[in-house]
Amino acid sequence: MTDPIAAPIRRDFKRIAGWVDPQSRVLDLGCGDGALLGYLQQQRQVHGVGVEIDDQRVIGCVQRGVDVIQQNLEDGLALFSDQQFDTVVLSQTLQSMRHTEHILREMVRVGRTGVVSFPNFGYWPHGWSILRGRMPITKQMPYAWYDTPNIHLCTIKDFEDLCKQLNLKVIERVTFSPTAEVTWLPSWRATLALYRFSEC
């Protein structure tokens, strides 16, 4: 995989594993080739299900022994019943979804707690790029403005505002730079933000 944000993902895997109870039920939205669920099955013996649209990634999940449902997340979570899961994960997918509010609401409908990660648009080199008159292209977000899946980019503060608006209680927040966890000035210094939340 040439996923540019693969490295920090490993660190957020560990964090997420720490938030997930052993043998609990986990739904991973946009689960890719099942790497996170495979990890959680190994580490926490969870009962995991992924949702993925891409054919090759679905095949990857089956090869890995991860249960997967092939569907477009934009079609909603009608397949899943209220409070069916202990944890619902949306990893680095929020920024590419059209119905941002809807998916966050759906996450707390089908699960007790939600876990979301997204690239922090407030990362200071982005601001520097904009000051120079250009949309940022970085290792973390390597797309030209006219050819990007990221249609709903936000900063850490933007996301927290939306949580308030949707009555979502942030239980925990962890922020990462490309090399480590960041606690000092995360709004500027973090490339990836990871949240755990529930309904208020």
Binding site: V49, D55, V58, V62, F80
Partner: peptide, 13 residues
């Protein structure tokens, strides 16, 4: 959906 409601392991392509 009915299988998921029964917590049955299911993969769907």
């Amino acid at each position: 959906k009915a299988l998921l409601n029964n917590e049955v392991s299911v993969t769907y392509a």
